[in-house]
Design a protein around this nucleic acid. Structure first.
Lengths: 348, 348
DNA sequence: CTGAAAGCGCTTACAG
DNA sequence: CTGAAAGCGCTTACAG
């Protein structure tokens, strides 16, 4: 391991007991100014680094938050991860990341077991893969006396501090398309069997169309794989299934780019002949051809609220107090209107 | 903390000593089949989870690799991080991530100190921010007896297991543009004061142009901020500085998208009037309008080699053997030719 | 203001 | 095949 120097080495060198050194390191009272200064000097000289492992074992506290998260190749999850890290740091915690690949539930359960081995002070569950995991995972946490919050899936007895309203967002984007005069609006989802989040997006799209008295058959639905090329294929399928299509809501910006690519190759003009909206507002979206209408999700606030809630739960847990789960914070994405859906202003 | 159940609890319940339980857990020999079975049963029943903290303290081994990395909002670093995690896992390690934001060297030095506190078995240095850190950081590691590898910056006495040849790549992309008949080729870099990596890219661009007897003045250079919109601005600046421009090498695909966006808005046809190449081959690049010529970097191999080398170094360190640093593995990106630079085939 | 001692939950020679 | 005991490097009542 690293530095061979221990508390005791410092203590000997300074001619004091080790707990005096401990007091200096942790800035506790009950050390004379003179002693404190002398000890500090020796610490600096020798380049002593306290051992967090030993401290954790002794204090029963690791200051680690385990985070289980998947699909890091995608925009949302990777933004979330970065923001979680930033906020955990601000609260004095480090992250112990456990990335899931694929959907092998059993694998994930084992993975979680391994994570628990490191005794994180709390756990953030950010896997948004299709449900079905939930029960198996829940089992892993059963009887485990450790605070846990979820960002995506809903689990019994597990607080979900923030909720990004997917339904309202898709509803808003779809409604915007309707207002622009489009009436045969398709949707491109991420997976064939959508995640919970995916289903909510479909719901919002349906709601808007139903309210407007417009069609929303399954023929108006296709699925990609969250990539641009996947979006392009889905678009091609959509045009076959539902030739009267005049607008598309793609569930992320990459797939929307695929739709734009399809339109370009088939000489379909966007937005006059086809309206396109995406989701995420990735930084590239503004430079698409044409610039893309989309919705920006408040990932910063999402992560902040999650981490803060978990930190409170940990505090309460340590103090052996009861924790009152706060109301779920509702967050709403911001719709960003750009050229890809602005038929009205183009027409006039 | 988690599970209150300890080795001792199991031992008592099984009526054996704690080290017998330890033997069972770690699959060590010298336990009778009967005892092993009985102990294992009790472990399963009680849902016992060994405590990795205690084990680490005792064995002086954490099975953690600290990784210091920045710019996770960008494609390269985030790909690298994910691949590092995957490979570390395969080698039996977990990652302890330390993300840097911005370039405050002092901040980073403190950060590194904190990381060392957790006694990782080894460290991966993947910060690619501008040099200048190096000395300060090097100091943090001085006298620290712990294996470390670097992926980007060069530090004395720190092995750099892999090297992605930036010069050859830019050279190759630029040469491709020349072969397609472009002769006034600009470059858009990421920063005003490029990183080491950035400078190598400029070098490759210059090499190709020099060899071909073509101009490569500083007027042909502009910088963005790695984003699409930044690339668009840079392109606009480039057109002012150097009006005869007929091709651009953007140092990443996002900035190349900005160039395409500029071309679109100014009715410049790509590739007949302007050739565009990027770098990275992000999954969207194939759906750009037109599809983008770019270079794909072998991130998997990059991460794999890095992690494996570090693992070997750790092995040697634990065994107190000398470690012979292997030759640096050279990796070459693959150039992907698409429509954005194919003037020849368009002309004919 | 300071220190002796026990404890956190494991592993590891060593002895039997 | 099994166990008593010391040790990893800290913290924490407790006593002085």
């Amino acid at each position: 391991m690293v530095n061979k120097i221990t508390l005791n080495d410092i203590a000997k060198k300074a001619g004091v007991s080790s707990q005096t050194v401990s007091r200096v390191i942790n800035n506790l009272p009950d050390v004379s100014r003179a002693t404190r200064k002398r000890v500090q000097q020796i610490i600096d000289e020798m380049g002593y680094q306290p051992n967090a492992i030993a401290r954790s074992l002794s204090t029963q506290r690791t200051w680690m938050m385990g985070v289980v998260i998947g699909s890091l190749d995608r925009y949302g999850p990777s933004r979330i991860f970065v923001e979680l890290n930033k906020n955990a740091y601000l609260q004095g915690y480090r992250l112990l990341p456990y990335f899931t690949y694929g959907e092998d539930t059993l694998e994930i359960a084992k993975y979680v077991q391994e994570l628990l081995t490191h005794r994180p002070d709390g756990i953030i569950w950010a896997v948004m893969e299709r449900a079905g995991h939930d029960e198996v995972i829940q089992e892993s946490f059963d009887g485990i006396d450790i605070p846990i919050v979820t960002m995506e899936a809903c689990m019994p007895n597990v607080p979900k501090p923030v909720f990004m309203d997917q339904v309202k967002t898709s509803d808003g984007l779809t409604t915007h398309l309707i207002e622009q005069g489009y009436s045969n609006i398709g949707i491109i989802t991420g997976e064939m069997r959508p995640t919970v989040r995916g289903r909510l997006r479909i719901e919002g799209w349906e709601n808007a169309l139903r309210r407007a008295g417009l069609p929303y058959s399954t023929l108006q639905r296709a699925h990609g794989d969250w990539t641009a090329i996947g979006g392009e294929h889905a678009m091609s399928q959509l045009m076959e299934q539902y030739p009267s299509l005049d607008a598309v809501f793609a569930c992320n910006d990459q797939m929307a780019l695929g739709v734009l690519s399809y339109a370009y190759r088939h000489n379909i003009h966007v937005p006059s002949q086809l309206g396109v909206v995406g989701m995420d507002d990735i930084s590239e979206a503004i430079c698409f051809n044409p610039p893309l209408t989309t919705a920006r999700l408040p990932f910063e606030a999402f992560a902040e609220q999650t981490v803060q809630t978990l930190a409170r739960m940990i505090d309460a847990h340590v103090a052996e107090e009861d924790y009152i789960v706060p109301d779920t914070l509702m967050l709403y994405p911001k719709i960003i209107i750009r050229e890809s859906s602005m038929r009205k202003s183009v027409d006039t």
